[in-house]
Design a protein around this nucleic acid. Structure first.
Length: 428
RNA sequence: GGAGGCUUCGCCUAGUCCGGUCUAUGGCGCCGCACUGCUAAUGCGGUUUGGGUUUUGGCCCAUCCCGGGUUCAAAUCCCGGAGCCUCCGCCA
C-alpha cells in the first residue's frame, strides 16, 4: 500500500509512477476520492458517537421522571450511530480496495516501459567459447548421477526431481556458501517455516498478485510459501522494531513451492523451473531513508556470490512495467547458460520501500521517537536448483566432467572436478 | 485428539464474579522539572497506538488478544476464532 500522505501532497508523482508502469492513471483519482469520502464518513460517525456517548452517560444521572425521555433519545442516537458506522465501514472498504489497486511508486531512476525497456547496467566476467558441443544441465546432471528427473516425475509428477550424489552435495554446498557469506556480511541466519497461515500470505501480497502460483493445504487452511520472503516479512508483523543499531538483516533458508500455472511449455526440461526448490533469501528491514543504500548492499552481495561461483553475469535494471507490485526498484542478476546462448535470471533484489511494511504493520522509531513504517528489501542469495543447473552447464568440460568453483570445494570433499562415477569421499 | 488455566497502554500488574464514576490501578523502565558539591535517593509532572479535526493550545473518536452479538451503555455478559501455558494420549 502506498503512503496516503504522499498521495495527498503530491498526486502527480503517483500519476507519473502509474504512467511509467503502464498502469491506469485514473486509479489515482479514484483513490483520492475514496480517501476524501472515507474521511467525511468517519467524521460523521465520530461526531454522532460523541453525541450518543453523552446521551448514554446522562441516562444514569436522569431522575426517574426524566429517564424514559432520556433513554428514548439515547436509543434513537444509537440507531443513528449504527447507520453512520456502517457507512464509514463501507467507505473504509472502498478506500482499501482503491488503495490496493495501486502498485508501489517507482523510483525516479527506473527505466519506464515494459520488459524490453529494462537496462543492462553492466556485464561482469567473460563468456567463454566452448570448442565442443555443449550439453544442457540435465544431460550433464544425469550422466553425473546428480539429477534424476524421471524418478522425480514418477514419485511427484512433472517439474519434480531428485538430487542425488554430487547433486545432493551441491545443494548443501551452495546453501553453506550462501549462509556462510551472509553471516559474514551481517545477516542473521534463519530457518523459516515453509507452511504459513493465510494472513501471512495475504499480508505479503501473494494471494492477490500470485494467487495462481500458490499451493494451498485446504484441509488445514495453510499455504506453502513460494519464497521465505513470506515468513520472514510476516515474522515481524505488527511490531515496532528497534533499528537504532542499523537495519535488521536476515538470511532465510526454506523450501519454496510454485505451481507454475501458465508456464506450460516454458523451461520444461531440467531443473530451471520446478514446483519445488530450496532457497536462501536475504531480507532487510530498515529506515526508509536507508533503503536505497541497503538495496545496493544486497545487490553487491549477490554479485559477489556469482563471482564466487565463477559465473559471468549481467546486472539488469528492471523497467517499471516489469516490476512487481511492491517493488519500487528491482535488479535482476542474470548468469550465462551456454546451451541457451543467453543470460538467465539467477537472482534478483527488490526495494519495496514502505509499501509492504505498511500492510504488515511493521514500524520503527524515527529520530524523534515517533513510530514510522519501515522499508523492506529482499534479494536472492541462492535459488539452489537453478544455480545447480547453471553451474553444471557453464562449468562443463568436453569429457563430461564439471569444474567445481574453488569456493564450493570445502563442502564437496575438496574435489576440483566432478566426474561421472567418481567417489564422493573427500580427496586426500 | 482430550481436559484445564491464561491473554489489560514497553515489561509486570489491579480491575472481569455483580455492565455506567475504567476518561483503566499500582510498580518497574523511560522523559522533563525541582532539590542536591557530583552521583544516588526523594518529590512533582509526563509517558499505548491508530484515525479525524485544528486558530498548532488543543479537541473528538476508536483501542483491554481478534471478530461477531446483547444493551441507552461492555475490559466486564453471550457466541465464534487465534495464541500461550499445564496435564493426558499419540508421534519423528
Amino acid at each position: 500500500m502506498i503512503d496516503l500522505r504522499l498521495l495527498r501532497d503530491d498526486p502527480d508523482l503517483v500519476r507519473a509512477s502509474q504512467r511509467a508502469r503502464g498502469d491506469d492513471e485514473s486509479a489515482v483519482d479514484r483513490l483520492l476520492a475514496a480517501d476524501t469520502e472515507r474521511r467525511a464518513a468517519v467524521h460523521r460517525a465520530d461526531d454522532l458517537r460523541a453525541a450518543q456517548k453523552a446521551a448514554s452517560q446522562s441516562v444514569k444521572k436522569a431522575t426517574p421522571e426524566e429517564r424514559p425521555a432520556v433513554l428514548e433519545r439515547a436509543k434513537a442516537l444509537a440507531a443513528e450511530v449504527k447507520v453512520a458506522e456502517e457507512e464509514a465501514r463501507v467507505a473504509d472498504e472502498a478506500l482499501r480496495a482503491a488503495h490496493m489497486s495501486i502498485a508501489n511508486v517507482v523510483a525516479p531512476e527506473v527505466p519506464p516501459g515494459g520488459e524490453d525497456d529494462s537496462v543492462t547496467l553492466r556485464t561482469v566476467g567473460e563468456v567463454p567459447t566452448y570448442d565442443f558441443p555443449v550439453r544442457d544441465h540435465l544431460e550433464i546432471g544425469t550422466a553425473l548421477g546428480a539429477i534424476d528427473m524421471e524418478r522425480g516425475a514418477k514419485v511427484s509428477g512433472s517439474r519434480f526431481y531428485f538430487l542425488t550424489g554430487p547433486g545432493a552435495l551441491l545443494e548443501f554446498a551452495l546453501a553453506q556458501l550462501a549462509i556462510t557469506r551472509a553471516v559474514a556480511a551481517g545477516f542473521t541466519p534463519v530457518v523459516a517455516p515453509a507452511l504459513v497461515r493465510p494472513e501471512a500470505m495475504a499480508a505479503t501480497g501473494f494471494l492477490t498478485e500470485h494467487d495462481e502460483e500458490v499451493y494451498r493445504v485446504e484441509r488445514d487452511d495453510l499455504y506453502l510459501v513460494g519464497t521465505s520472503e513470506v515468513p520472514i516479512a510476516a515474522m515481524h508483523g505488527d511490531e515496532v522494531l528497534d533499528l537504532s543499531a542499523g537495519p535488521k538483516r536476515y538470511a532465510g533458508w526454506s523450501a519454496c513451492f510454485r505451481r507454475e500455472a501458465g508456464s506450460y511449455g516454458k523451461d520444461t526440461k531440467g531443473i530451471i523451473r520446478v514446483h519445488w526448490f530450496d532457497k536462501v533469501e536475504l531480507f532487510s528491514f530498515c529506515a526508509p531513508e536507508d533503503a536505497a543504500a541497503e538495496h545496493l548492499r544486497l545487490l553487491q552481495f549477490e554479485e559477489e556470490f556469482l563471482q564466487a561461483l565463477e559465473l559471468p553475469y549481467r546486472v539488469v535494471d528492471i523497467a517499471a512495467g516489469d516490476l512487481g507490485t511492491s517493488a519500487s526498484r528491482k535488479y535482476d542478476l542474470e548468469a550465462w547458460f551456454p546451451t541457451q546462448g543467453t543470460y538467465r535470471e539467477l537472482t534478483s533484489t527488490s526495494d519495496c520501500t514502505t509499501f509492504q511494511a505498511r500492510r504488515l504493520g511493521i514500524r520503527s522509531r524515527d529520530a524523534d521517537g515517533k513510530p514510522q513504517t519501515v522499508a523492506t528489501l529482499n534479494g536472492t542469495a541462492c535459488a539452489i536448483a537453478r544455480t545447480i543447473a547453471c553451474l553444471l552447464e557453464f562449468h562443463q568440460r568436453a569429457d563430461g566432467s564439471v569444474h567445481v568453483p574453488v569456493a564450493l570445494r570445502p563442502w564437496l570433499g575438496g574435489h576440483a572436478v566432478l566426474t561421472p562415477g567418481m567417489s564422493l569421499a573427500p580427496s586426500a
